[in-house]
């Protein structure tokens, strides 16, 4: 039994817990809470000296009446659709394929190589891809040459660049994003497959009637979490792969917010654009969640 504690020992003991929490609280204050308070800038005109003036929705009105904004919004939605919706089944497919490998050595090799790009920075990946896609010396165009196709300058082509974003995202995330499915596959009860075998089910039937339904909750979780990134579309990737020739095809909300904010120093306008982005992102994640809940009866929370 613990002895009943006096107020002094309580303060001394629980006070220590607060001390442990202090460094984290200081960090949260500087990098999260103070900036959150600073978001009110979206409703003000920023001034370097003296208090900023409250201007209501002025910056949002400018935002919604600017054609440039709708261009970047369209780019964001297109690129996100490719990188989230079009990409969505690929890691699942990859996991199902890896799961069929019998050789442990081959399995380890495939996994070790496929997970690696996830740990490379987008600066490195951009460097690798720019070199690989080079029209004169890149591997991609040399492979095209082998089958008699003319070289393509992918990085400066407005039609190709979005597919470069899709392909490099797949290159980076295909393996890593399959881990969650591989773990879920291991949790499926083997007796389900055994009884299906006894009923004479084929491989495709087993995949359709056992594997896919068993993986559905994982798929829904992944989808909901990814919807949270829909309005972001991957700043680091686009920032490192864009250039002047293709900017009109790949300029997304985040690169636009960066440019008007830090390069043009329109602090209030940039903050307003960011606030709009955050609000839509929140609506998207809540919307996907409630839709998933209605369809399957299960959600994340």
């Amino acid at each position: 039994m613990l002895k009943p504690r006096t107020l002094r020992t309580r303060l001394r003991q629980e006070g220590f817990l607060l001390v442990l929490l202090v460094p984290a609280l200081v960090y949260f204050s500087v990098y999260h809470l103070a900036p959150m308070a600073g978001m009110t800038l979206a409703f003000q005109d920023f001034r370097i000296v003296g208090p900023s003036k409250f201007v209501g929705l002025k910056h949002f009105r400018i935002l919604f009446s600017s054609p440039a904004f709708f261009d970047v919004l369209r780019n964001t939605l297109i690129i996100s659709s490719m990188k989230i919706i079009l990409f969505f089944p690929l890691p699942l497919l990859f996991a199902l394929m890896v799961n069929e490998l019998r050789s442990v050595l081959l399995r380890k090799f495939v996994q070790a190589t496929a997970y690696l790009p996830h740990f490379l920075s987008w600066v490195v990946i951009a460097g690798v891809w720019i070199s690989f896609l080079s029209p004169s010396s890149g591997g991609a165009n040399q492979a095209r040459g082998l089958v008699g196709l003319p070289p393509v300058d992918y990085m400066t082509s407005k039609t190709a660049i979005r597919w470069v974003l899709f392909a490099s995202e797949t290159w980076r995330s295909l393996g890593w994003d399959s881990i969650i499915y591989l773990a879920a596959l291991m949790r499926i009860n083997p007796s389900l497959y055994e009884s299906a075998d006894m009923d004479g089910a084929g491989a495709l039937q087993k995949a359709w009637y056992i594997t896919i339904p068993e993986l559905a909750p994982t798929m829904i979780t992944v989808l909901i979490l990814n919807m949270g990134f829909f309005m972001s579309a991957g700043f680091d990737q686009v920032f490192n792969m864009m250039n002047d020739s293709v900017i009109s095809a790949v300029d997304i909300l985040d690169t636009y917010i960066y440019r008007i904010g830090l390069l043009n120093m329109q602090y209030s306008f940039s903050t307003a654009a960011n606030l709009f982005k955050g609000a839509i992102g929140l609506v998207l994640i809540l919307g996907t969640h409630s839709a998933a809940k209605r369809v399957t009866g299960k959600g994340l929370w």
Binding site: F28, H32, M39, L41, L262, G278
Partner: peptide, 23 residues
């Protein structure tokens, strides 16, 4: 209260400019 704080921080991303101005 602290747990609520953690969740708020997880959900709301204040963005580039406000953070830049604090730094």
């Amino acid at each position: 209260f602290f747990m609520l704080l953690v969740i708020v921080i997880m959900v709301f991303e204040p963005g580039l400019i406000p953070e830049y101005l604090v730094i």
